[in-house]
Amino acid sequence: MSHTVLVCDDAIFMRTMISDILAQAGFEIIGEAETGREAVEKYRQLKPDLVTMDIVMPDMGGIEAVREICKGDPDAKVLMCSAMGQQALVVEAIQAGAKDFVVKPFQPSRVLEAVQRVIG
């Protein structure tokens, strides 16, 4: 059975790109979220195997969302999607419970490596 993924990003472009990369690798995209709040709600609802999480989003940022998600499920597998120069934020997200990160611009191979590490 393929792993299920929730993709969280406020940009449609990024969601599409991540979804494409993961779908081509055989993952099942079961949901998308545009805000941190939506991400937390959908996580509870859908119980995905993996979450990809943008850091900067309106209405609750990615770091806050990771904290909320991990509060309810400490084993949640959240992969942060960051841009260059956001290292301090990535570190904060890791402390909040994120399991790995990838840096834009995405190289599909790097994304899939990170996903494999998270899913284990």
Partner: peptide, 13 residues
């Protein structure tokens, strides 16, 4: 590697 500091944090965790 990109963001070696964050990578180090991850290893620490």
């Amino acid at each position: 590697a990109t963001m070696r500091g964050a990578r180090a944090m991850l290893a620490l965790r």
